[in-house]
Design a protein around this nucleic acid. Sequence first.
DNA 1: GACAGGTATATGTATAACACATATATAGTA
DNA 2: TACTATATATGTGTTATACATATACCTGTC
Lengths: 134, 134
Amino acid sequence: MDCKHQPGAGWRNGHHCHCPGTRVERFVQPCLLLLLHENVSHGYELMDRLAEFGFDHEPIDVGAVYRVLRKMEEEGWVESSWDTTGAGPARRCYRLTAEGVELLHAWAANVEHSRRRLEHFLNRYRQTFPQRTS
Amino acid sequence: MDCKHQPGAGWRNGHHCHCPGTRVERFVQPCLLLLLHENVSHGYELMDRLAEFGFDHEPIDVGAVYRVLRKMEEEGWVESSWDTTGAGPARRCYRLTAEGVELLHAWAANVEHSRRRLEHFLNRYRQTFPQRTS
DNA sequence: GACAGGTATATGTATAACACATATATAGTA
DNA sequence: TACTATATATGTGTTATACATATACCTGTC
């Protein structure tokens, strides 16, 4: 690898960097659902809180977060209202719906399945390359 | 959830099913790299072997496997040659290059990172919903 | 009062990944 | 002959992603 990019850097956009992406794609969605279950919140704040889920070393796509939130509202998984209290621009505050909670549970089962799959890969990889086991 | 689909079933194609997909997208690529490190093989056989990585319950996209293999050859991570021995149609046999092995190592680090992220999500989810912990 | 910087939401766009369908060919077997 | 398994490949519409840009509000400061 002749590339010092953080994993996930834009290798698909003609940068000729072939580092594999780190994204468990659409993983931002279950994270948002879980965060919103914990607290009513708005996009800008959620972006900070997403860092706790391991999005800290790859810069978050701001646009994606807002789009995912709007999409989830379209689907009825969250609801929003404007919060004009406090300083600064108005915040679109999201809260989870009952359907959103159901989706969160479905996601959890799903993430568990994915986790097992990654673990299987890693076990097999380490068996093949024991010297690389950290 | 009013949907009995296996996770990963085509919810994006107008089926109006909102089950989250299971795909750790592009995960098929590191699996192919690892499989090819273990054995020289061809697409049709690799599809069977992918089942060992947890692609068994979601039907594999045949086209995707062949396309990923060709793409990887373009990039120089694998090389192929026709195998006309044995019965049946000719098989395009792939083997890993040195660069492919390097990519595999990069992927492994990456998958480990993803696994940690999923684990963090699950820990946090289980903390919130202890009664759902299996 | 102008202006910089932090907060906050939103859209534009090109490319890549994806799901699903379809096409083609070889060879064994019922 | 028809059917099935093996094997590779392409077509196509939709979604996801990365990165850029636009807009607006508010506070502090020069």
